[in-house]
Design a protein around this nucleic acid. Structure first.
Lengths: 353, 353
DNA sequence: TTGTAGGCGTTATCAG
DNA sequence: CTGATAACGCCTACAA
């Protein structure tokens, strides 16, 4: 019946669309050489006479030639693009890491292809498939939720770099942060300030890094001969709301504590709000320490004491390692050791235990 | 001399690499039809007999066939990928927008290709070129810094959607937020609370949205017959540090003010820290209002009153509009009107003017 | 050193 | 409705 044609606003324009792509062949003709020679020169694949090289470079410029990545990928097998699987592209932590990846890849002529897995293994698996389908030259997975096996399997098809997991294989490289020591330092700090009742807002035990942070917390207590009180530990999910709820729970249960260690800064922020709502001051009534050192944490009131996690550098190193894998070099990158940043949210215990 | 061969860790693996790609041709053979028919069926390009369709679908499954996007792009001219130029991938605001784009594009079978321009026009131009080279089907530019002309020129080559700029053309659609009204509401709010000396931390005048916010601030003052005092206005750059410095400057100059309106939440956070460092309480001594409603702002202590800007929705609408442009439909999306969120950082004036 | 020819995996244009 | 047959733009043996 009503056959739908192109809408008016598109028909109006005189189809200036086809900026008639400049092809390698055209460059070749202008330079008076064969296409293969142009290809070689542009890729540095072989040695060519200086005369032809210059002619080609010139022709390339005058024509404004830009090689078609699709054709390159199809013919050459390499796409110069790296798949990057992140859990939440809108998380401040991942944002910094992604920037690091971008900054490292760009000068090398590679482009990142970001995808979010939303902490869901199935989604993550799908991301990997999609990226492989797009023929990326390698995949970086930030904090994978997939099994070690699945990751190794993936690494059989192409180079893979993962963070937060400790497994190595032929084309698989992993970069891990010492979460245990980080949490240990944070807790030690609180203990050194005289606190003995230190509550802990944990992350999801399923995350290896969350488990490690919990372990660090316990190890510090033990080293100081402070009893571990399960009542002071509240599980969270790494989101602000978890921190808020945790504080509410602790207070509702009438738990006594003068310090609070949150397994990440986001939960620390939520906790800070919870304390504030209950009229408890930081650090006067409760000392607060986080983990991650998000860019915003230094602007909290009071600025949050925390463990610095080098997100940006993590991204750079992951990307650099990927480039090495591709080049056939075994990566050796390592993350810096955890560093405690003491800011305004933690102070010597003033109230009685 | 030392000829470098493949590194040992790569030679070890018996090159399980080539998972010998399943091609459309193989599917065709298995299904007993021609490649073109398979293509048609998979793309719904034409009507085919039910028998063949089923055979093809079946074959596709058994073989686990996944079409090669590169080949598709090369042959068909469409890559099913959308370029997205953002200014800072690690900004909380953009993060939310990017997620919106992702969520909208994915069900439609499109993939976003993110790139950061870092507020630099030259970098932005380069991003556009790179994306065009990658043959994306369209480009979304979030808060462009490029000239209107440049954007229009770009839109001659492919569909373009921009945010924060008011220009329409054939294949160019723009989505704007009413920054003027937002700033107006924020300032009105402060005035309604009895404040008469309202300082303003402005954004970079070069950004149209920053200029609009400034205009809203002034309009509100004027409407309330309050004098505009240039001394109370400090320029900033939308980063936390700007807010901090602005407060320091205001205080160093001995300016009197009981309220502070920051042109964005990030600067408001910095300002909060500045006030805190000077022993000024929010909102008791100074009421504070921001703009953007970043996810973290609700967890500030006290929670920040602000103008909600729908970042996630912005992303979704931008992506949806792009999809419409591609489909040849003229987009009509519009952003919701600015909404003031009154939280704990603003209160009735208590101190004398 | 350089050119020729074939192919990468699809889609699109034609005939049938 | 369906099947050949060209492209798409580039890379890479292979041959010269």
């Amino acid at each position: 019946m009503t056959k739908i044609g192109n809408p008016p606003h598109l028909e109006a324009e005189p189809r200036a669309q086809g900026k008639l792509t400049v092809t390698l062949e055209m460059v070749a003709k202008l330079a008076g050489v064969s296409p293969s020679t142009v290809s070689r020169i542009l890729n540095g694949t072989a040695v060519v006479s200086e005369a032809k090289r210059r002619a080609v470079v010139e022709a390339t410029k005058t024509l404004g030639f830009v090689p078609n990545p699709l054709a390159r990928g199809l013919a050459g097998g390499r796409t110069f693009s790296i798949g990057v699987v992140t859990q939440a592209i809108d998380s401040p932590f991942y944002g910094a890491a992604l920037r690091g990846i971008e900054d490292e890849l760009d000068p090398a002529g590679y482009s990142p292809l970001f995808m979010s897995a939303h902490w869901d293994p199935a989604t993550e698996a799908r991301c990997l498939e999609l990226l492989k389908a797009r023929r990326v030259d390698g995949i970086v997975v930030l904090m994978p939720r997939l099994s070690d096996e699945a990751l190794k399997a993936c690494a059989r098809d192409l180079p893979v770099v993962v963070t937060g997991r400790d497994l190595q294989a032929g084309q698989l490289f992993s970069l891990t942060f010492d979460n245990f020591t980080g949490a240990l330092r944070a807790t030690e700090h609180l203990i050194a300030l005289g606190h003995t009742r230190i509550a802990f807002i944990a992350g999801d035990e399923e995350h290896p890094d969350a488990a490690e942070r919990m372990r660090g917390y316990r190890a510090a207590l033990q080293a100081a001969q402070l009893a571990f009180d399960p009542q002071l530990v509240v599980p969270g999910k790494y989101h602000e709301i978890s921190g808020l709820e945790a504080v509410n729970q602790l207070l509702a249960q009438g738990q006594q504590f003068t310090a609070l260690f949150a397994a990440n800064d986001q939960m620390a922020a939520g906790a800070a709000l919870g304390l504030f709502q209950h009229g408890l001051r930081v650090p006067d009534d409760v000392s607060l320490v986080g983990f991650d050192d998000l860019p915003t944490s230094v602007y909290a009131t009071p600025p949050l004491s925390t463990i610095h996690q080098p997100a940006y550098e993590l991204g750079r190193l992951a990307a650099a390692s990927m480039l090495q894998l591709i080049a056939g070099i075994a990566p050796t990158a390592q993350l810096p050791v955890p560093e405690l940043l003491v800011r305004g949210s933690s102070a010597r215990r003033s109230t009685p235990a």
